[in-house]
């Protein structure tokens, strides 16, 4: 088995269809419809709630996205447990205890796949009904384990905290205790994973500020990717909220959450400006 495993070779059965970020978001059944304009009614909420006219499709699309994300999180954690020798954290090594944490995360993510597969089935979705965006595993392919912690555990699992909080609320509002119960449990695990990322990033780069800087920059790049179109943010115009309290539990500082919030806000404004331009050009 190779030391590193490329995203193109991820093993899937014939039901899965893989795609990239832009195409996945362009799916009109998505919770994040980038073509939707909210520019005229500033107060309109775009939050994923049962009231949205497209709530059923949007929630099912999001749950399928969660399921394939969990598969990749399982694969990514497994690879990090495999790809690096146990050592002092320098060069190509990671501390033994970090390997153990990655193995633990692999088990947690395996349960998350089980949970989200059952929830998808419960919501009437079939595996492969929506395309799979493989960006999570891509972030788990870096040759520097610290970049994996920043990109996967902090940025993407941080996003999972936001998404699960939103889905838990969705279950609550929709009167679906099954959904609410499951999201509550997954949320607890994700807070643990983000905290692992925060703690290990700090510990491994303790004496290497340059490496830490690089990792935090990579985290921002990944965070920005998911701020795309203002999909996640504190404004009600974003379908997914920013779960401040749980992020703090997971080791994010106030400043870090503020930075993400600002990035989300900028992305939302960018999208609205682009929609306005398109409308003007079309004479709407």
């Amino acid at each position: 088995m190779r030391q590193f495993f490329p995203v193109e070779d991820l093993a899937r059965d014939d039901r899965f269809v893989q795609t990239n970020m832009a195409k996945r978001l362009a799916d009109t059944r998505s919770a994040v419809d980038v073509k939707k304009s909210k520019s005229k009614s500033r107060s309109a909420s775009n939050r994923l709630t049962p009231e949205r006219h497209d709530a059923s499709d949007a929630a099912r699309s999001l749950m399928h996205g969660i399921m394939v994300g969990e598969i990749q999180a399982l694969e990514g954690a497994g690879r990090t447990a495999h790809d690096f020798e146990a050592g002092d954290g320098s060069g190509d090594t990671i501390p033994f205890e970090l390997k153990l944490d990655m193995a633990r995360q692999a088990w947690d993510e395996a349960r998350h796949v089980e949970i989200s597969a059952k929830l998808s089935d419960w919501m009437g979705t079939e595996i492969g009904q929506f395309q799979e965006n493989t960006v999570l595993f891509e972030a788990a392919c870096s040759n520097d384990p610290v970049l994996r912690l920043a990109g996967v555990n902090r940025a993407l699992e941080g996003l999972a905290i936001d998404v699960f909080t939103q889905m838990k609320e969705f279950g609550q509002l929709a009167g679906d205790p099954f959904l609410e119960f499951c999201e509550d449990w997954m949320l607890a695990d994700e807070v643990t994973h983000v905290k692992m990322g925060s703690d290990w990033l700090r510990k491994v780069t303790e004496k290497d500020p340059e490496r830490r800087k690089k990792a935090l920059e990579f985290q921002q790049v990944v965070d920005k990717l998911f701020s795309f179109g203002g999909a996640r943010g504190e404004s009600d115009e974003s379908p997914i909220g920013l779960a401040r309290r749980f992020r703090e539990l997971a080791g994010f500082t106030d400043d870090e959450v503020d930075t993400i919030s600002q990035m989300d806000h900028d992305a939302l404004e960018e999208r609205k400006a682009a929609v306005r331009l398109a409308q003007e050009a079309a004479g709407v």
Partner: peptide, 8 residues
């Protein structure tokens, strides 16, 4: 852990 990504 390594094999997880390799089995369909």
């Amino acid at each position: 852990g390594g094999w997880v990504a390799t089995v369909p």
